[in-house]
C-alpha cells in the first residue's frame, strides 16, 4: 500500500451562484504522476488552486499525509511540501529573476536579512538546469524583459528549487518550444524516480498519456473518470474515453462501433 500524500474530499467551490467545483474527490500518492484532464472551464485550475491554498474551498476537507488540515492557505501548503506552477505563472514582472525564484521563500538569516550571494548562485544554477538558452540574462535580470516561455521557466525553476514532495504543474508546457517541453518531461520523470509526486494538468493528451501513472478527467466541476495507466492501452483510447464524457449522446448511436475505428474516423 503506497503512502497517501494528499487527499481532497467532497471539495466544492462556488463563485456567487456559479459552482466551479461540485464535490470533488482527488488523491495523490507518494511517487506517482497524476494527469488531470478536462475541457476548458472544467475546474482543473480551481481545484489545484485549492490544493495550493490560493483559493479557499466553499466546503470540503483536505488531508495531508492522512491528517485533516484546518486554516489551509498558500503558506501552509508550501510548508507541507507542495509547490505549484500556476496557470498564470504568479510572477512579479518588475522584479529580478532571483526575487521571483525565491518569492515567499527568501533565503536569509534569523533577523530576516537575505543571503543574496547564495540566492544568486542558486538562481543561476536553476536557470542553467531549466535551460535558459539566451545567455543575455543573469539572475539579476528583470522578469519583464523575458519572453513568455522564459517567464514560464522562472515559474518552473521556483517550483523545483525546494525538492517538494508534490509539484503541481498547471499547463506547464503551453508556451514552451519542443526542447523546453522535453526538459519539463525529463524533469517530471526525475521527480518520480526520486519518489516524489506530480500533479500534471495538460491539454495535449498524448503528452499526458506518456508521463502520467493515473488519469483524472474532470467535467463541469466534477471528476467524471479516474483510470490508471495500465487500464488504458493507447492515448487514442484515452481520447475516446474523454469524448464519451464530453458527448455522452454519441455512445448510444455508435455503441456497436469499435472504439479505435471510430476514433480513427473522427481524426
Amino acid at each position: 500500500m503506497t503512502e497517501r500524500l494528499i487527499e481532497l474530499r467532497d471539495i466544492t467551490k462556488s463563485y456567487g451562484n456559479v459552482y466551479a467545483l461540485g464535490g470533488v474527490n482527488l488523491h495523490v500518492d507518494k511517487g506517482e504522476v497524476v494527469g488531470l484532464l478536462g475541457d476548458n472551464g472544467a475546474g482543473k485550475s480551481t481545484l489545484i488552486k485549492i490544493l495550493a491554498g490560493a483559493v479557499k474551498p466553499t466546503d470540503g476537507e483536505i488531508l495531508v499525509r492522512g491528517k485533516s488540515v484546518t486554516g489551509w492557505n498558500a503558506a501552509r501548503s508550501r510548508e507541507a511540501g507542495i509547490e505549484t506552477v500556476f496557470q498564470d505563472r504568479a510572477l512579479a514582472v518588475q522584479q529580478s529573476i532571483v526575487r521571483n525564484i525565491f518569492m515567499g521563500n527568501e533565503q536569509g538569516n534569523r533577523l530576516g536579512f537575505l543571503n543574496l550571494k547564495h540566492e544568486i548562485a542558486e538562481a543561476g544554477r536553476l536557470m542553467r538546469e531549466i535551460g535558459f538558452t539566451s545567455k543575455v540574462f543573469t539572475p539579476n535580470s528583470i522578469v519583464g524583459q523575458l519572453s513568455g516561455g522564459e517567464r514560464q521557466g522562472v515559474a518552473i525553476a521556483r517550483a523545483i528549487y525546494k525538492q517538494a514532495d508534490l509539484i503541481i504543474l498547471d499547463e506547464p508546457t503551453t508556451a514552451l518550444s519542443l526542447t523546453e517541453t522535453a526538459k519539463v518531461f525529463h524533469f517530471v520523470r526525475q521527480v518520480r524516480a526520486s519518489g516524489r509526486s506530480i500533479l500534471f494538468i495538460g491539454h495535449n493528451i498524448h503528452h499526458v498519456y506518456d508521463i502520467a501513472d493515473r488519469f483524472v478527467v474532470m467535467d463541469r466541476g466534477k471528476v467524471a473518470m479516474q483510470i490508471s495507466r495500465d487500464k488504458v492501452k493507447t492515448a487514442e483510447e484515452l481520447i475516446w474515453f474523454m469524448e464519451q464524457i464530453a458527448h455522452p449522446e454519441h455512445k448510444s448511436q455508435n455503441a456497436k462501433e469499435p472504439a479505435l475505428k471510430r476514433k480513427a474516423g473522427k481524426l
Binding site: 490560493a54 501548503s77 512579479a92
Partner: peptide, 11 residues
C-alpha cells in the same frame, strides 16, 4: 508589483 502572485506564493 503583483499582490495576487504574492498571495499565491504564500506571502
Amino acid at each position: 508589483d503583483n499582490p495576487d502572485s504574492a498571495a499565491q506564493m504564500g506571502i
